[in-house]
Amino acid sequence: MSLLTVSQLEAGYEPGLSIVKGASIHADKGEIVVILGPNGAGKSSLIKAIAGIVPVTGGSVVLDGEDITAVPAHLKIRKGLAFVPQTENVFPLMSVEENLAVAAGVFRGAAAPIEEMFALFPDLARQRRLAAGSLSGGQRQMLACARALIVRPGVLMLDEPSAGLSPKFVEQVFARLVEIRASGVTIVLVEQNARAALAIGDRAYVLVEGREAHEGPAKTLWDDPLIAELYLGHRKEGVQ
């Protein structure tokens, strides 16, 4: 059975104006699942709806056998579902250490020690007293991941972690995601950068107009000329 099963999910900010229109995806334990799709397809809204910050109007989200569709956002993370937003994903005026402390403090004893996160992200350890707002884009993304991981989630969802990063940092962030998966965390990744995401992904969905239009192993999706041209915005030989 899948760890995370999303069935026929409908969600949107305004009643009657769904952005997510009956999307169904699932993620098995230890998988990296990539969600791709053209702009406006509802990729971000889909994982925000799963995380509970876009109102859900229909369908269900089941995590580890438990229906968590109606669980409020701040309690979803207690169920083991962590979410890293695309932008504004750190508390800018608090130090790196405080960003991690406030996330861990919500869980009292159950969270990982801050030092464990610093071992995983050594760059952050060197900046621990610095205000999170003054970190570089890549480091900020690392801090956002660490903040989500400190509560030892079963599923880590990320909204375009590569957005705004230079290629070198994209590589670093994605390499770290592979390490995180190796530690047993299931990853659901929404990405524009299809090439980089499919390189580390196991399975991928292509989302079109609010529902999944294609599903398949990540490796073959990149090579499927029809999919590539229609949805991923590149031709077979194209450069990113």
């Binding site: 910050i53 409020p72 701040h74 207690r78 750190v90 508390f91 005026l93 608090m94 996330a103 919500v106």
Partner: peptide, 17 residues
């Protein structure tokens, strides 16, 4: 800390738990 976090970013505060 939760109060400061919430004042800096309400949406992120919610997903932080």
């Amino acid at each position: 800390r939760e109060m400061r976090a919430y004042s800096q970013n309400p949406a992120l505060a919610r997903v932080t738990g």
